[in-house]
Design a protein around this nucleic acid. Sequence first.
DNA 1: CCTCCCATGTAAGCCGTTACATGATTGC
DNA 2: GCAATCATGTAACGGCTTACATGGGAGG
Lengths: 177, 177
Amino acid sequence: MSLKHAILVQLETKPGSGYDLLQHFKGGLGYFWNAKHQQIYQQLKKLTEQEFITFSLEQQNGKPDKKVYKITELGIKELKRWLSGSVKPNKINDALLVKLYGGHLIEEDNLVNELKCHQQTHEKIYNNLLEIEQTYLNSSLPSREKYKLPYLTLRRGILGEQAWLSWAKEALQMIKK
Amino acid sequence: MSLKHAILVQLETKPGSGYDLLQHFKGGLGYFWNAKHQQIYQQLKKLTEQEFITFSLEQQNGKPDKKVYKITELGIKELKRWLSGSVKPNKINDALLVKLYGGHLIEEDNLVNELKCHQQTHEKIYNNLLEIEQTYLNSSLPSREKYKLPYLTLRRGILGEQAWLSWAKEALQMIKK
DNA sequence: CCTCCCATGTAAGCCGTTACATGATTGC
DNA sequence: GCAATCATGTAACGGCTTACATGGGAGG
C-alpha cells in the first residue's frame, strides 16, 4: 500500500499532474517505485476523496488541460504518520530467476539470449542513473545538501544495477562453459 | 503471473506438498520468489483443476496428512511453453526507499534505526546464502554440474545482498555526516 | 498517413495480503 | 500452560495489470 505514500512524497516535494508523476516513476529518481498511469489516476482520485491532496485545473495552449495536484495539511500529517512507522524489507519476485532455475528444460540459446536481452536493458538503466548522478554531483553544495536523501535512493539504484550486471557477466560465462 | 510457474518449476525438480513448497520459498533457493501459504494452496488448487499437477495423500505418524503434488505431462508442456517465452525485467517497489526519499519530514534517528534494522535482516539473509553456497561448492562435481542453473540464482542473491549491504553502509555514513 | 507525445480516465479480472479457522505434537 | 512446528484451508479486500476509450498537436 505504498503507492499512495510514494505519490504523497513526490507531491510534497513538488505539486504536479498525474502525468508528471508518471514521468517521475518512469525516470531516474522514481527508481524506487513503479506504477502505470491507470493506477496512478485511480490513487489520485482516492487521495483526493480522502482530502490528502487537492487539485486545480490548468489550461495550456496546444495541449490538453492538466490537473495539478498538491498535498494538503492533512496529507502531510498522514505522510508523516506513515514515514514514522517501519516498513517491511523488500521481497523479490523475479521471473527471470524462475526461468533460469528451470532452464534445463529449454535450449541453452534461449536462455543466453534472454539474459543478454535483460543485460541490455539493465545497462541502459545503469547509464541513465550515472548521468543523473553526474548532474547531482555537479550541482551546488546547498543543492547537494538539499537532495541528500533522494541521492541515497539513486545510489541504491546504481549499486543495485552494478551488482546485476556483474552477476549477468558471471552467469553468461558459466552457462557457456 | 509467475507464481504458478515457480511452483511448476519446483515440482518438476521434486514432488512435494504445499508446505514443502512454502519452506522452499522461505529458504535459500527460493530466493527468487516469495509467497505466503494461503496463496500457494490457492494456486495448487487451480493448477490441479487445470491438470498441470496431481496429488496423492500421504499419511504420517504423529503429523497431519500430506498432499504430495507432482507435475503432469501437461504441466511440463505448459512449463516449457512458459519458459520458452520471454519475461519482463523485474520492477522495483521499495517502501524503504520511499521512506528515505521523504526522510526530511521525520527525525534522523528514526531513519537511522530503520536502516540499521533492515541491515540486520539483510546480513542474516546474506550469511544464510553464503552457507548454502558452501554446501554447493563442497558437493561432488556431477552434483555441481546438475545444480549449475539453480546455483546461478543463488549467486544473484549473494551479489544482490552484497550490494545492498555496501549501500547501507554508505547511506548510514552519509546521513550521520 | 502513421506514430509518438501530451493528458485523462473506466472496467474487468487476476494477484497478493490480512484475517479467520482447525488441530495434533514437541519443547521450554 | 505457552509457543512453535507441521499441515491445510476459506473469505474479504485491496493492489496491480490488461484491455478499452478519447482526442488534439508535432514530426517524419
